[in-house]
Design a protein around this nucleic acid. Structure first.
Lengths: 153, 153
DNA sequence: CTCAATGCAAAATGTTTGCATAATG
DNA sequence: CATTATGCAAACATTTTGCATTGAG
């Protein structure tokens, strides 16, 4: 099972990694070993990762990596739009690879943080809003417990 | 204008202050001068306040107040449900008095953080969601620039 | 070979904790 | 008067910065 699962994924992963690296390159950033590793980590991961998580995974491949480099790169990648950042109330700031292709919202597992996307957007309704705000953006997330996490405890 | 505006508000404010103090009392917390001030600050304020904002306003009345007391009380009031906390991406953790009476969502001014509520809730739609998540809660916020802030620059 | 990226150390920020003192109920 | 809340100081966690060195283009 693990085998063709992983195999099916690896194509998508390589594609994502290349996308991320291409975006960095396009924005004038150099492709370093650490940034390749960073891209790979987020391509292989559906959920959110804290800077600490990323650091831990990075140091597995590059034992000498430093925390500030991780932070710097996470920040840059967020600014470029390659990563989405999100602040969990408990658990602080986390990052995940962002889908750049289309507007969508997230269904997030509060246990493992695995995230699924869905296309329904409440802003497509004709909302009656109070005040005369000039609307800039919005945020809609649904939290729950995913199938796996429901069955495993 | 300021006069009957303020006057109309003051009734609501007193009511809110009493509500908050009653909730603290009900939960077995003592009503201290600082907590009264804290309740008043949030009753008089529509928008979000950072711990620093709260500290500054508190020290206007109690110059000797300390930061950790502010934090402690903010945390307690949040746990009790008297305050809602919210993490602004830029600007960190902030608090506002919470409306305990009915479910609603927020329209938030990104400039002054003045917040209006509205009753439309996307969860009332029959959403088709991926996965088999057991849904726990959700979050829907709209960000914009309020009337005042649009006209003042 | 030039300039950007890294690692290191140290600082800045934001939040929490332990404990003696003060104040509430 | 018993017990909780406060202020102080110090600890802690997280994120940012300055600078010499390394490495990508």
């Amino acid at each position: 099972m693990a085998d063709n699962h992983d195999h099916a994924h690896s194509h998508r992963h390589n594609h994502l990694v290349e996308d991320m690296l291409a975006t960095m390159s396009r924005n004038g950033w150099r492709i370093t070993e650490q940034r390749k590793t960073l891209a790979k980590i987020f391509a292989e991961q559906d959920g959110y990762l804290s800077p600490k998580d990323v650091y831990d995974q990075m140091s597995a491949e590059y034992p000498s990596v430093s925390f500030d480099t991780v932070y710097r790169n996470l920040r840059m990648l967020s600014e470029m739009g390659v990563l989405e950042q999100f602040y969990f109330m408990e658990g602080g700031l986390k990052f995940k690879g962002s889908c750049l292709s289309h507007h969508h919202h997230h269904l997030i597992c509060v246990n493992c943080e695995k995230t699924m996307t869905f296309d329904y957007c409440p802003m497509e309704q004709s909302l009656e809003l109070p005040g005369n705000y000039k609307i800039l953006n919005h945020r809609f997330e649904i939290y729950g417990v995913c199938d796996q996490c429901q069955n495993q405890s």
